[in-house]
Amino acid sequence: MGNDNYYLGADVGSVSTNLVLLSEKNEVALTLYLRTQGRPMQTIQEGIKVLRSKIGKSAKIIGVGTTGSARQLAATLLGADVIKNEITAHAVAASRVNPSVQTILEIGGQDSKIIILRDGVVSDFAMNTVCAAGTGSFLDQQAARLGIPIEEFGQLALEAASPIKIAGRCSVFAESDMIHKQQLGHALPDILAGLCQAMVRNYLNNVGKNKDIRGPIFFQGGVAANPGIRKAFEEELGQPIIVPEHFGVMGALGAAYLAQEKVGRQSELRTRFRGLQLGEIQFNARSFECSGCANRCEVVEILQEGSILARWGDRCGKWANAVGKGTYKGKSQEGEQQGA
């Protein structure tokens, strides 16, 4: 079976770690959605184990792309061919799924963004600034407080007869407003629908400020699973909202497409993928404070069975660059400085 070649895309975010396998024929062969739970390294390894058990023995990974806030960590562990920021990855995935898409609304666990495309190219974007009020974690938290599973949140919101108004600017205000309304006796679906509307309002005022939102509009990211939010967007924008089939893993899908672009272009290029057995390898991370200068950078070290794989976090790059060139000799460097 020569067609068993796949491109792997990995999106390691704050809340979820997503893996996508893309076949050479541009078919999505497998998607995995795992909770990161603050342990990105273990989650990536867990994902690779699951992936290995699901694909055939003859399957081969011929290209790897990583994205998400832990894209560097993921790239080190997996051996990535492409490392890209989330915005480009999301835009690439959406425009490959539907080349006519002009707006992408993306709401993830800890951040939200809007991407404006024209003719398949990003022409503007924005990410949330200081405020994370309109993101998935806040919905998670509120669902937990009200004792309803997050999966049922949106469905309940759709049952609302008359959504109530909730202050959406800040999650602290929103929560206290919700509690007051609930103590007055408002029905749960009305409160949930009100929260959805408040979130959408906040998103459009904050992230979507001054953006030329035109259809077709894609809604992706984990929160797109929530039909309540989708409906609130449709009402606010007066346009249909399309939730693509793989809405939850679009970042990873984009990374896989980018890997395909890169590896596919140069056929002689061999992937740097470290192999499916990496689920079994022992990886460790540790950090230390460098005392070389007053900046006292927090340096992170990734170890594979005791040997250093990568380092980052230092401003001057002396630790990062020392990897692979023997160990860094702090002593001799200090000597040079004294002599200078």
């Binding site: 920021n85 989330e86 915005i87 480009t88 003719d119 190219v121 990003v122 022409s123």
Partner: peptide
């Protein structure tokens, strides 16, 4: 640095791709 780097990378990607187009 992650927040800054992500925004900067995405911005430069955008400018570059737009320029080509």
């Amino acid at each position: 640095e992650a927040g800054l780097v992500t925004r900067l990378e995405a911005f430069l990607d955008m400018v570059e791709r737009r320029k080509v187009r």
